[in-house]
Structures are given as structure tokens and as C-alpha cells.
Design a protein around this nucleic acid. Structure first.
Lengths: 348, 348
DNA sequence: TTGAAAGCGCTACCAC
DNA sequence: GTGGTAGCGCTTTCAA
């Protein structure tokens, strides 16, 4: 029979060409069983000649891995998440996995749909960078023994695999940096996410240690579905800055929010950092793009991506049986948006 | 037999529960054949009761679609691509498709590897946003009748499905905008990509119409693998601006490059746009983040994503047999980085 | 060291 | 209308 160029070539073709059974071919593909060097060589040659590539779906049907991981992420257009996805994909590629990436927009229904769909597609596991404020679905997965690792979002009192930074510490560092510069009256802008609440908690804790207290007028926790961070950052900043006892510094819980804060402040005639200090969070690429370059709390995005995939693979391979949690440390990246507070600077 | 909570439930379980054959179940799943309402209802109920979800891989083995598309993209961390990926995913989701996203870094070997791998995984088609300066692999796919659509990258003399903007026109618009403002001496910064070369061609064409000519000292085409656009933008800008006959405006072929240009110019003491006009390309979110907000040539990213998936699906479904190419139009988004050139402004 | 054969979960053709 | 059955391409006993 003529093997046309379009014919999909299967294990049978290889077997025929190498004059062995498909069982033998399968064994050399998977390096299992005992095959003599001679046959092995012959089979390999046949595979090469025919440009044979095993159909992964068929083998998955037999219980093998699909070598595909589902990544649920709130919003790829958000630099933090796209950079994280990038890193996870990089490491996945190194380890032989592909990523199905899904945007959830913090929408529970979408999360459900994707989880279910990717399950049907037999992904080997899920990386969840999504909101999942609701633990039910995650528990369901775990009960069904599907590998799950949560990233950038910790569930302190729940037994899941997770990699995240110490958000509390991040907030703590931010506050201390600002206080060291002499700021006492600080405004904060956050989102209604666990991680952001932790950052605030750390922030407040640091304040507390110095006998300071956050002015509730200068605390804003925006709705999770307000997607335009820049706008929100601007609005809040305007509100804060127009008050008589306006803050001398702002802690924004992500870089985008900080960008908005800076834009608005400048537009209102404030000089940054002379009249107002701003500190962000995440250290995404936009921190270096805005002017002045943003002082921010860095999440080690690359390491996070790496750790996530490594953890995932160790779970899949079964070498990690108990749940484990890796916590990375945030760090202060000083750039140009924070400066020592001087009394005179408050009246510009 | 006790159906444990972990048992994977199959079409057989449904058949048993509904007291029909698996053939019948299959028919109600796929809405094929003739099934009486009574049985249909019974089967559906059984599926619901058992929380049955068909194994997509198994049906794919039988020649059905995997409902998964491979997306090859140079770099998810680049805002243009992450925003595009976001839009493609959105539309894919609406149409019932998932996306396997792969970063290629314009690396031919990675492109090959991914193409081959995703092929094994039986994706229904490929969206290529990657470099693919080399057409061979694409031709190979097409010959094998695998649906392919190219995005943000046109192959004018080659018959492929593609959606892209008119890059020539984009460059043309940019040049005209600058010339209308009185600029005659303009520097350009581009990458060594087809799209960028087209933009330059359009740019030069416009110049030509006005009897102007690009000073070759102020033209730079950076290597495709130089990944740090900001840095490159800065370096070139410094070089240009330190010349005696320095340009009064810069056309950067993407927003990141423009961001670098602006940073450097400001650092050298130039006021933007008073002493130097800068125009970018893409209109990514960073255009609104930098200061001053960047005037740029917008690519309609959302429409592009939509068109790409729509085209892909129409190819898969077989309703589009001939190749087709959709060209979207770029548009000028005026913000704050371009301004009329005044003679005095050249000596600040 | 090799191969025959029994599936994996599903679809589709052909009988009844 | 419904069901039996032959695969899809692969892995994995179990015999030879």
C-alpha cells in the first residue's frame, strides 16, 4: 500500500516497517520491557524514516499523562499575571508540559466551567492563580485526587499545595520603608482579595509597632471586579489628596494602582516624590516604565513560576504525597517615587 | 457494584443506569440518529445523576475535534501579545475552544518543537502570532490540511489565512501626523520584523510624498532577539539626541520602544513634547501609563483577536475553503507626546 | 526477547 | 428507535 504524504502514520506502520509487533514498538517508545539492541535500533530507524510521532491522546486514554496543565488566571492582560504565566510556561516547557491558559475574570462560573472542561480534556493538573475565594471547587478537585497548586494566593488554614509570597511581610516592608522616611500619614489603596488584605494587615502591623494608626479615610478597598486599576488609583488619590490632612505617602497594593496614583498626583500639581511618596506592589515591568520609576515591593515572579511547575510535577510524579506550601519572600525595590518627608513639603 | 466517589464514570455507567445501550447514549450526547423523547429524557437524567461528562480525548480518537487551538506567540510578557492572547482566548471561550499558549521567543527551534508537539496532541488548528520569518513549517502545516491562521504578521505573496493590520498604512499615518506638526527631521527605531519593515516603508513613502527623506543616521533596526525594548529605545534615543542635527521627532515601532525613548529624552533634559515629539505603535496599555501619555498608532487588538478565532472556526468547520485574509486598519491615537515643531524648541 | 490480545471511552455503521 | 460491534492508536499483561 502506498503511504501517501497525508496518511497519518501510526504505531502499526512502524511495526510493519521494522518487522516487529506493535507491542515491541510500544516498548521501545516507552523504554519498558526488555528489547534487544538490534530490534531497538531497527524500530528507532523506522520511526525516524516514517517521521512517526505517537498520538498522545491515545496513550492518555490508556491512563498515561496528557502532559498538559490547566492554568486558570484572572486576566492575562494584567502584567503581573501575564509575566507569571510566561514564567510558568517557560518552566513547563522545560519539563515537557504544555499549558492551557484560561481567563477567569474572578468569575466563579467561568472558573467552574473551565475546571470541568479541562477535566474532560484530562489535563494532568491545575495551576490556579484565580480568585477562588470559594474553596468548594478546589476541595472537590483535591478529593478526586487531581493535582492542584495554588499560586499567588494562599489559604492559610486549608491544606493545599501553594506557592505564594509572604504578603503580610510585603505590607510590613512597605510600611517600614515609608515610616523610615518619616511618613506618618499614609493612604492605602487595595483590592478586595485575600492577598491584598494580608498586605494591609502587615502594613497595619508595622504602623502599630510605631504607635501609628491608619486613618480610615485614607483606606480604600476596591471591588474585585473593577478592572480598570489605573482609573481606580486615580480616583482614590484625588479623593485623598484633596483632603486637608492629606496623606504624604500612598501605599498601592499593585503597580497599576500606583501608576494611577502617580498620574493623578502629578495632574493635581504634586511633585513626586517631593510632595508625595508612592510605593507599589508586584514589581511588574510597568514599574520601570512609569515616571518617576516606581519604588515597589517585588514579587519574585520568575521563581514563583518555576516553583509552581516544579511542585506540580513532583505531585504528578507521585514523589510528593503530603501537601506542601512554598512561601517566597517579597523585597523592597527602591526607585524614585519615595522620599523623606519634610514638613515644608506638605504645602507646595 | 458500588460506585465509589472516585470511580471515573463512563458512557457504560450511563447506559446501565438508563437501561439502554452505549450506542443510544452516544446518540443523545451528540444529537445524532433518532431517539425517542422518552429515552432521551431518561438518558439525560442518568447523565445528570451520575455527573457524567464525556471524555473528549476518546472522542477525538474517533476523529472528532479536540476543541483546542494552539497559539504560538513570541512573548507573553510583551503587553501587545498578552493583550492579544487575552482577546483570542475570550473569543475562543465564547466559541467553545481552549487555547494552548506557547512562548516561542522568535526561536525557530521552539516553534518547530511546539508545532510538532501540539500536533501530536491533536489540536484542531494553530494560531501563529510568532515570527515565522521562515515559511517552510507553515507550508508544511497547510499541505497537511491543518487549519492555520497567522495573526499580526502578513505574508503578502503567500496564500495563508491571516488577520493583520495594514502596517504600511500605520507607518504612513505616523509620518503624516509628524509632518503635519512641522517635523522634518525624524528618527526611527524599529525591530527586524516584517511588520516593522512595512511600517517603515509606509513611513518613508509618506516622507517621500513631501519631498522629505529619512536620515540614515537616525534609522535603527534592532535585532529581533534583543528582548529589552526599553533599553534599546533608550540607547538609540541617546545616540540620536546627541547629534548636532538631532531629530525633532521619533517614530518608535512599538510602545515599549517609545517608552524607552521618552525616558532617555527626559533624562537628557529634553521636554516632551516641547523639545521632542515621540510617536509609538500598538496602543497597548502602557501607552496610558507612561508620562506624558503616549501618542501612538493603535492596532485594534480586540477586533484582531475576535477575527482570528472567527476565521479559525470557519476554517475548522469547513465553511471556508479558500484562503482568506482580513486586514484591519490602524488609527492615530493622539495623546500628549507629539507637538508642533518650533524652530526655537530645538535649542533648549 | 517478542508478540497476541484485551482493553481505555467513545463513535458510527449496520442490523434488527 | 435501538443495540451490537468494529475500530480509533496506544499500553500492558501473559504466553510463547
Amino acid at each position: 500500500m502506498e503511504k501517501g504524504w497525508k496518511m497519518k502514520i501510526t504505531i502499526y506502520d512502524v511495526a510493519e516497517a521494522a518487522n516487529v509487533s506493535i507491542a515491541t514498538v510500544s516498548k521501545v517508545i516507552n523504554n519498558t520491557g526488555n528489547i534487544s539492541d538490534k530490534t531497538r535500533k531497527r524500530v528507532k530507524q523506522a520511526m525516524k524514516d516514517l517521521e512517526y510521532h505517537p498520538n498522545i491522546l491515545a496513550s492518555a486514554l490508556m491512563g498515561k499523562q496528557t502532559k498538559t496543565i490547566g492554568l486558570l488566571i484572572p486576566d492575562l492582560a494584567n502584567p503581573f499575571f501575564s509575566e507569571l504565566a510566561r514564567r510558568i510556561e517557560d518552566r513547563g516547557h522545560e519539563l515537557g508540559y504544555n499549558l492551557v491558559i484560561c481567563n477567569t475574570d474572578y468569575d466563579g462560573d467561568k472558573e467552574d466551567k473551565y475546571l470541568q472542561l479541562l477535566n474532560q480534556k484530562m489535563v494532568d493538573g491545575f495551576v490556579l492563580a484565580s480568585g477562588f475565594e470559594d474553596l468548594e471547587k478546589v476541595e472537590e478537585l483535591i478529593k478526586r485526587e487531581i493535582p492542584v497548586v495554588i499560586v499567588a494566593r494562599d489559604f492559610p488554614m486549608f491544606s493545599v499545595n501553594a506557592v505564594a509570597i509572604d504578603d503580610f511581610m510585603g505590607g510590613y516592608i512597605a510600611a517600614n520603608h515609608l515610616m523610615e522616611l518619616g511618613h506618618k500619614n499614609i493612604g492605602v489603596i487595595a483590592r478586595d482579595l485575600w492577598s491584598n488584605r494580608e498586605r494591609l494587615r502587615g502594613f497595619n502591623h508595622a504602623l502599630d509597632e510605631h504607635g501609628l494608626k491608619l486613618n480610615k479615610n485614607f483606606e480604600y478597598i476596591m471591588d474585585i471586579h473593577d478592572i480598570d486599576h489605573i482609573y481606580e488609583g486615580r480616583e482614590m488619590t484625588k479623593k485623598y489628596l484633596l483632603e486637608d490632612d492629606r496623606p504624604t505617602a500612598i501605599f498601592a497594593c499593585n503597580d497599576l494602582l500606583a501608576a494611577g496614583a502617580i498620574q493623578e498626583a502629578k495632574e493635581l500639581g504634586f511633585k513626586i516624590p517631593e510632595n508625595l511618596s508612592v510605593i507599589g506592589f508586584d514589581n511588574t515591568s510597568i514599574a520601570t516604565v512609569i515616571d518617576p520609576p516606581l519604588t515597589t515591593i517585588a514579587q519574585p515572579i520568575e521563581s514563583m513560576g518555576r516553583e509552581v511547575m516544579d511542585l506540580m510535577v513532583s505531585i504528578i510524579s507521585g514523589e510528593k504525597k503530603e501537601k506542601s506550601r512554598v512561601t517566597l519572600l517579597p523585597s523592597l525595590v527602591k526607585r524614585k517615587t519615595t522620599k523623606a518627608f519634610e514638613v515644608t513639603s506638605n504645602t507646595y
